[in-house]
Design a protein around this nucleic acid. Structure first.
Lengths: 237, 237
DNA sequence: CGGCGGCTTGAGGTTGGTCAAGGCATGTGG
DNA sequence: CCACATGCCTTGACCAACCTCAAGCCGCCG
């Protein structure tokens, strides 16, 4: 995965060892479950293309999406690190995945400290994204949450070259957005309408254009720092 | 840290390397900031005793606590993995910490793949705990959130030998609890009163006794699996 | 003894969920 | 090519939930 190279300078041997385990492609169709809570998994999937959601279903029937999974992300983190998956993952578009048995992954970590360390940095970023979602769901107003989520999605898509300067295709339905930020679908709709009315965004189907990024950033208190890929070795102050 | 030994069998050399970097003790007083959002940190603190909260302050003045930090946890994860801390950490009791410069930590990871891998598993558990908080804040009812939080706190405290079978000392004020689960202090109070009235818990000051664990588990949909420490090598099915 | 932080309780108002109905686009089968 | 079904978006009305504000209380510590 090229992304790991951002955190740490991997050498030739590391890269070829990485390439060795990324040799089994799998195709998954839209709406197929990839991980179901409670079952045991011994395989990771590195996303090559397409989108998925990591979520949990409650007895009340409500669904909370913890994360939108994009190309470059790892499906099976953290599910595979437990005896039984603690969350579910479903494809929300057709996907191309790289299939990596957990034994291969573990062996790679054990053999190559640099790779394991790079993954640790990757995990720290994942944790920070989750933490930001806690803030979103817990303490931000609905309009702020939506603004934050839109900017986060734009920024993450730009990071993988899947969005232009100011517009992107939202991979989720409005109900899906609600399940991410903890709102009902009708209220997501109202909040989107408000952002449009105030001239902050424009929409056409699932295509969203950011018209006033500055205002949205202030509204959602969005600071893209937590999405950045930080090098392991940092320059002296 | 003994906790890492649960995930992976570290050998003598790994353990002594770990011990080598855990040699600088620091005392921090209650209510002191340990990490302030926006600043740069090049040091991790392994908690030996005492409690802290990892949180973020919003412009509205609201505070969201993402995590209660307990003995065995790492302060500086994920702050230290970024150029600038993305969250703040404050001690909520007097604390004893082990001071580990990030360079030492990085060097250890690079030199000892097993330690890096064990830390990766540690990070996965951390991520799962955060994910569970997203569910809490986003989709659970206030009473359910509180039930879930109480059981999570009890279970985590038991895991470090700081709680009996059915009771524990809540390290947070009611306002603090509200900042964890996204409720106002008065509402936390009302929900606690409801749990008492229904005979699920009993309270005396900050001492909380779980009277009906089964009912609380159902109410909060609490499954302690996500808090378990999972070994890297798992038995074949 | 006096002050302070945190707990407790109440009243009132807004927010956002629920329910429901209608519209629009897409796709499918006759 | 049209009839119909399906899924999603949109809008409205209503109501419960939870926040805010406020006041009083308790226990602790100086």
């Amino acid at each position: 995965m090229a992304r790991l190279n951002h955190s740490i300078a991997l050498d030739e041997a590391d890269l070829s060892a990485l390439a060795d385990i990324l040799n089994r492609q799998v195709i998954v169709r839209k709406a197929k479950d990839i991980i179901v809570e409670g079952y045991e998994y011994k395989v990771l999937h590195i996303v090559e293309s397409g989108f998925a959601v990591r979520y949990k279903l409650l007895h009340s029937g409500k669904r909370q999406i913890m994360n939108v999974i994009m190309p470059g992300d790892i499906i099976g983190f953290p599910a595979c690190f437990y005896e039984h998956a603690v969350f579910s993952v479903t494809a929300i578009s057709d996907m191309k995945l790289n299939h990596v048995p957990i034994e291969d992954f573990t062996a790679l970590c054990m053999a190559r400290a640099k790779v394991a360390t790079a993954l640790l940095w990757f995990a720290a970023r994942e944790t920070a994204i989750y933490a930001e979602h806690i803030v979103d769901a817990g303490r931000r107003e609905p309009l702020e949450r939506l603004a934050h989520f839109l900017l986060e999605t734009l920024t993450r898509l730009q990071g993988i070259g899947a969005a232009s300067e100011d517009s992107f295709t939202m991979p989720l339905s409005q109900e899906g957005i609600g399940d991410v930020i903890g709102l009902s679908a009708p209220h997501v709709n109202r909040m989107l309408a408000e952002l449009r009315r105030d001239g902050l965004i424009a929409m056409s189907g699932h295509e969203i254009r950011i018209l006033d990024r500055a205002a949205l950033q202030i509204l959602g208190e969005f600071h893209p720092a937590y999405l950045s890929r930080t090098p392991v070795h940092r320059p002296a102050p």
